[in-house]
């Protein structure tokens, strides 16, 4: 419903630009299925988004706001590229990938866990801390790219390309779709199992929805804050790993600057559900790919996709509050009726 409204509003915006929204939309959709490469790219784009969306969603289940997925994503990217470059000549590719993945999880987890610890220990506002931590991460990355990680040629602030042995294998030859997508799907399912099947996930959700009752049940919700942020940071960092070793094969200054923000939107669109995140990420991926192509073809600014995504998100959020309000009014009406009888 909200998605539809968002599309309609962005269609109206297209009208202002003097384009026929219907033909533009039709073009967008047809272009997506133009060839296998483009179609596969939707999923390539969706892959890191799933991780950052999971990062936001998991913390959100504990009623915590992790706005810093972008920074955790960068930390993951830095660690992934450094570890890969360091180990690629010394160990077999498969083993390197496993070590790199473990290292990114640890680094992102510690980076995120620190935010959780500040929240638990000093009741620091995790929203602000996580947001600011993104800038710290960004500047660490920029610094490293100009110093230790700078390419051998020394021209641009980027790393040397990774050796083919440490690339995540491509699933379909002729496309860019790599096995990181599979990993993302599995992670979504894994997080779902964690949240809804494991006691730890249960405790995280319980702390999010009623922390006093949780405390009365002998559960230390402060520890849970740290754990939730650790996992959340690790998830976003894994996103950096799959993007670096799967799609980019190097680290470039200022790459993927909006995965964090898009992840938040996706998580909200999916109502925090890890399985919903799979579909919402693919939708966002499609809009991104389509937008780029649309911009190339018809002279429509490709920023229209951003607008489209933006309006979809606004309506998703509005829809949430409208539902809440309706619910409350219904309850009140019921109560009044019960009293008057």
């Amino acid at each position: 419903m909200a998605v539809l409204l968002g599309l309609i509003v962005s269609g109206l915006l297209l009208l202002f630009l003097g384009e026929n929204p219907l033909t533009a939309m039709a073009m967008l959709f047809s272009s997506l299925f133009r060839d296998g490469y483009t179609f596969a790219d939707i999923f390539v784009k969706a892959t890191p988004l799933m991780f950052t969306a999971l990062a936001f969603a998991l913390a959100f289940q504990a009623n915590l706001f992790n706005i810093g997925a972008q920074g955790q994503f960068y930390i993951g990217s830095i660690v992934a590229v450094s570890a890969s470059l360091l180990l690629q000549d010394k160990l077999p590719g498969g083993l390197v990938l496993i070590i790199v993945a473990a290292a990114t999880i640890l680094a992102g987890g510690v980076w995120g866990g620190l935010i959780g610890w500040l929240k638990a220990r000093f009741n620091a506002n995790e929203f602000l801390v996580s947001m600011m931590s993104t800038y710290v991460a960004l500047n660490i990355m920029n610094y490293l790219l100009r110093t230790w990680l700078l390419e051998s040629k020394g021209e641009y602030p980027q790393t040397n390309p990774l050796d083919k042995t440490v690339w995540l294998p491509i699933i379909f030859p002729g496309t860019r779709l790599h096995s990181g997508f599979i990993l993302a799907l599995l992670t979504c399912i894994g997080v779902w199992i964690l949240l809804y099947k494991l006691p730890l996930g249960f405790r995280i959700r319980a702390a999010g929805q009623g922390k006093d009752a949780t405390a009365m049940a002998g559960i230390n919700y402060k520890t849970l804050y740290i754990i939730a942020f650790f996992i959340s940071g690790a998830l976003a960092a894994l996103g950096g790993f799959v993007e670096v070793n799967g799609a980019q094969h190097m680290l470039v200054q200022g790459f993927n600057p909006d995965v964090g923000a898009a992840g938040i939107g996706i998580a909200i669109l999916a109502n925090g559900n890890p399985i919903g995140i799979i579909f919402a990420s693919i939708l966002f991926g499609a809009l991104k790919v389509g937008g780029t192509i649309m911009g190339q073809l018809a002279g429509i600014p490709s920023s229209i996709t951003e607008l489209m995504l933006g309006s979809v998100m606004v309506f998703v959020i509005l829809g949430y509050f409208v539902r809440e309000k309706l619910e409350e009014n219904r309850e009140k009406a019921k109560l009044k009726e019960a009293v008057s009888v």
Binding site: F202, R205, A206, G210, A213, A217, I219
Partner: peptide, 15 residues
């Protein structure tokens, strides 16, 4: 925990 299911509330103290 009001938004949670009865089963989850039963589980709360026994997690």
């Amino acid at each position: 925990i009001m938004p949670m299911k009865l089963t989850e509330n039963m589980f709360l103290k026994r997690s």
